[in-house]
């Protein structure tokens, strides 16, 4: 019991970490250095403790951690869907501008960039009832979830955005595969 108590006492960031993580926030190495270091230092302990509480604490080597929930069974919330859209249009705009996606944390996300993105994906965004101001508000929601942070008057994407990026890439891969498969089938059908 004493050992358990003293171990718990060592985890001085436990309460804050649990509060942030259980609110759906991603803890990033960039931006939440002290929380990140605490997690990293007692990684196994935190994982066991949160597991006992019914949460799965996941780490990504690119420098972020979060409470994982099985997305298949959970309902994707409106915010989540809109965030996916927001990041998608940002990535798409930056990719078109020739910016390497992997360095997204260096981008300056501000009204100018959002305007470009809005112009490019106007139809899509209007369909979701999103204008530039709504996109800026979304960035604030994203900050609460640990995807963005405000820095010197503009927004910065945090490593946790990798989760969206991974998802986009897998979707793109899947699409490519489907296209190849379709092309193969068509070729086959033509041959036959």
């Amino acid at each position: 019991m004493n050992h358990f108590t003293s171990t718990l006492n060592q985890l001085d960031k436990l309460a804050l970490l649990f509060k942030e993580l259980s609110n759906g926030k991603h803890i990033n190495r960039t931006g939440d250095a002290s929380l990140w270091v605490a997690l990293e230092h007692d990684k196994t302990l935190y994982q066991s403790l949160f597991k006992a509480l019914g949460f799965e604490l996941r780490f990504d080597e690119r420098g972020f951690a979060w409470f994982h929930t099985d997305e298949i069974s959970s309902n994707i919330s409106k915010t989540s869907r809109q965030l996916a859209l927001l990041f998608m249009v940002i990535f798409d705009t930056q990719a078109d501008a020739g910016k390497p996606l992997i360095h997204f944390s260096d981008w300056i996300v501000d009204r100018t960039l959002l305007s470009q993105a809005f112009e490019k994906h106007q139809t899509l965004l209007i369909a979701e009832n999103l204008d530039i101001d709504a996109l800026l508000l979304l960035l604030e929601s994203a900050a609460r979830l640990g995807f963005t942070q405000q820095s010197r008057g503009h927004w910065q994407l945090l490593p946790a955005v990798c989760r969206y990026l991974d998802h986009f890439e897998s979707l793109a891969n899947q699409q490519r595969k489907d296209e190849v498969q379709l092309a193969d089938t068509e070729t086959k059908e033509i041959k036959e």
Partner: peptide
Amino acid sequence: EQLERAKQLLIDEGNA
């Protein structure tokens, strides 16, 4: 911006 972020990262990590 990038330099500032690099510096801030090292300071934050150093503090943490």
